[in-house]
Simulated assay, not measured.
Amino acid sequence: MDDLELAASLVRAAGTLAAQMRAGGQMDLDAEHKTSISDIVTAADHAAEALVVERLRALRPDDSIVGEEGAEHVGTSGRTWVIDPVDGTWNFFHGLDWWCSAIALTGPDDVILGAIHHPAGDATYAGGPGLPATRNGVPIPPLVDRPTESVGATTYLHPTSLGGEVASAFFRAAAQVATLRFLGSGSMDATAVAQGTIGVSFQHSVPDWDRLPGEAILRSLGGERVCVEAGGVTWNVMGLPTPVRDVAAALPG
């Protein structure tokens, strides 16, 4: 099994396990807060991450592993698997279907590939720079660039950041697009861009596990990703080339 096939099989297995646990009811999820009341972790997050780690340790023993829920293994290959067992845990816990399991593989200098499984849609996305992007094994057409003012953007701004320089940067960027959607899962947002329903995603302080799986797939389709410093934080902007350029230019003012 090659790396892309392995990544797709891992996220499908993790997503399926998490969905089964959710179907068992909230008592099976044991949610706990992490950094805030909206940042939670469940037993399903831990179980799905453990499943992926176990399989990677067996199949790619020389690779490093980093998981959102604390998994860590230092390998010797120079490659690292970055795991997000349940991306969109708030949605997952509260019964919304915009959540997924995601993974990325990185090399010394760049992301190699990413995979995302959306259990509610029974859809598995995979791809990476220089690799074909697929949905359930079927090639996804390349992205078609569009004017920024005609596209929707997915984003997030925590209520505690609604004032000050961060909010100013946010509103400058938001003014560039047709509409905003706060959907709650960075990797799922990337699949919306991949399918042409959303044009750009922007958010600040995005960890690797929320960024890399979607970035890998979008770049395989002709999408772009940039980092921008604005308001004292780092913004991740990815999607169609023109909206990425315009949003990135607006953030610093």
Rank of each mutant, 00 (worst) to 15 (best):
G25S: 07
V11I: 05
R135V: 14
V53H: 06
T148F: 09
A194N: 04
R172P: 02
A169D: 10
M1W: 06
A48D: 00
D208C: 09
R225C: 11
G231C: 12
A13R: 12
D62Y: 11
V233Q: 10
F182E: 13
F202Y: 13
A14Y: 01
A48I: 05
A71F: 08
P207M: 12
V177P: 01
L17W: 01
L105R: 00
T35P: 01
K34Q: 13
E49Y: 03
D109L: 14
C100N: 06
W99Q: 05
P132N: 10
E149M: 07
I116E: 02
V177G: 02
H204G: 03
Q203V: 13
Q26F: 05
P61F: 08
S220V: 06
P85W: 06
P252L: 09
L105G: 03
G231D: 07
D246K: 09
R22Q: 13
I116V: 14
T148E: 04
R57E: 10
R146G: 08
E72G: 07
V111Q: 11
G232H: 10
R172A: 15
R211E: 13
A7N: 00
G25Y: 04
R135E: 10
A178P: 00
A175F: 01
A104Y: 01
V144T: 15
A7E: 08
G231N: 07
A153G: 08
E69G: 03
L240K: 08
E68V: 05
V138C: 07
D62W: 10
C227S: 15
F170C: 03
Y125D: 06
T124E: 08
P141C: 08
L157K: 09
N236A: 15
G163S: 15
L212K: 04
